[in-house]
Nucleic acid binder design. Structure first.
Lengths: 233, 233
DNA sequence: TCTACGGACGAACAGTGTTCGTGTCAACTG
DNA sequence: CAGTTGACACGAACACTGTTCGTCCGTAGA
């Protein structure tokens, strides 16, 4: 039935093929899947990244993707791998190891924030991923150059990367439920107002320092936490 | 149709009702939903927590839950609220603030680990949740008693809670994909073996300190990170 | 006793990831 | 050059998910 009813479209396709025989319909590749998926996440968030969404953006059905990607999980891995490849690692400098470390983490943070919610995939990504290992290697080089012992260095890197993921996941999740409104500012005032409504008997410190609990412009809190980790070494 | 074909079961139900008129079929309450959901997460993981799963464990259909719970998101919030209510807060002691802080975080960590994957909900939970605010208040009291200034205290608490969630999420995600095998030990050797297969030219430090990157028994890494945060203050 | 109301719930809708089987085109092979 | 093979594209379907609609019914109030 579909066979017959689409014969006219096929006819048109054949005629077009006469004009441009070499173009051939642009075959699906892993790269095209990944870039399409990244575009989807960038504009509509990680929750909107579905196999069907990627497929129809490529003008096909979901089944076509499974020839190039085993899973959606594997697609997620490929995405965070691509993102990780975008962070540039400095050549370690003994005197500036703290700044270098924070800079790499900041790059990763910005990469994650650019694709809202994608850090959820980063938390699930296999630690064996080559591209994330590249970052680990770079951070390890920086800390070792700074004179940090191997074990604390390794564990600090682990903690920092975990924190980057958690920070960006939270930042994205707080933005999306707001839908489209004025997002940050009103939200902050709203939270502050609610904090002040708490019973003073049970939440004395929370109420007294409500403004501090909600403070922090831009990535102040992020930088603070990173320096906390590094100062503890 | 169903009306007729089930008349026999109804008949049996009526007969049973003669024996025990007061029991009445145990109405659905929010508490029963929450405890059932927690049981499900404990035995099968957070991914298996579905409205249908909870409903059928209660002997009913999914629609019945929506009279007591607005969303699955709200159910998730209720779950992490219940878990948060289980951690006990010490009365702040100036000399032992570090140990007290770490202990509270450890309680939360164990609570999260008991219900694999539930920390994913904690990352998404509204910060206005009363039960998590109770923990924040307790931690704030501890840090203030220890002489930490309000702002660093607030930010450190935020970072620590974020780290607890990320740590437990990762710990649960690493366990589940293994399915049922020998899980930890083989996995660790496997990762170590793969690390050693890396090209030495690109991953010199990773290879040299591969064992350190994979070290850490029990919650050593967890305690290390917490002390790092606290020492940085 | 009659009525109204709120909880319980069957059925369905729109989505999701994933698989099966069939097609179809390209490039090797004889 | 003809024929076969094999990889890729894809339509359809399966088993799920969260959520809503409309109906039923048992209990509480008038």
């Amino acid at each position: 039935m579909k066979r017959k009813s689409s014969s006219r479209e096929e006819w048109a396709a054949q005629i077009e093929a006469l004009d441009a025989p070499p173009v051939r319909k642009e075959p699906i590749t892993v790269d095209r899947i990944v870039t399409t998926a990244l575009g989807l996440v960038e504009t509509e968030g990680f929750a909107a990244l579905t196999m069907r969404g990627v497929a129809s953006a490529l003008g096909t059905g979901p089944a076509s993707l499974y020839a190039h990607v085993r899973n959606k999980a594997e697609l997620d891995d490929l995405l965070i791998g691509t993102l990780s490849r975008n962070v540039s690692l400095p050549t370690p400098h003994a005197g500036r190891w703290r700044a270098q470390f924070a800079d790499v983490c900041g790059q990763l943070r910005d990469e994650f924030l650019r694709y809202p919610g994608i850090a959820q995939a980063a938390l699930a990504a296999a630690p064996a991923n080559l591209d994330t290992l590249r970052i680990t290697e770079g951070l390890l080089a920086i800390l070792l150059k700074g004179g940090v012992a191997p074990r604390p260095a390794a564990w600090t890197i682990d903690a920092a990367l975990l924190y980057v993921s958690a920070y960006t996941v939270e930042a994205s999740l707080r933005r999306h439920p707001d839908h489209d409104e004025d997002s940050r500012v009103v939200d902050r005032d709203e939270i502050l107002a609610r904090l002040r409504m708490l019973p003073v008997s049970r939440f004395p410190h929370t109420i007294e320092h409500a403004d501090e609990l909600n403070s922090g412009e831009g990535h102040e809190r992020f930088e603070f936490t990173l320096q906390l980790l590094l100062n503890g070494l």
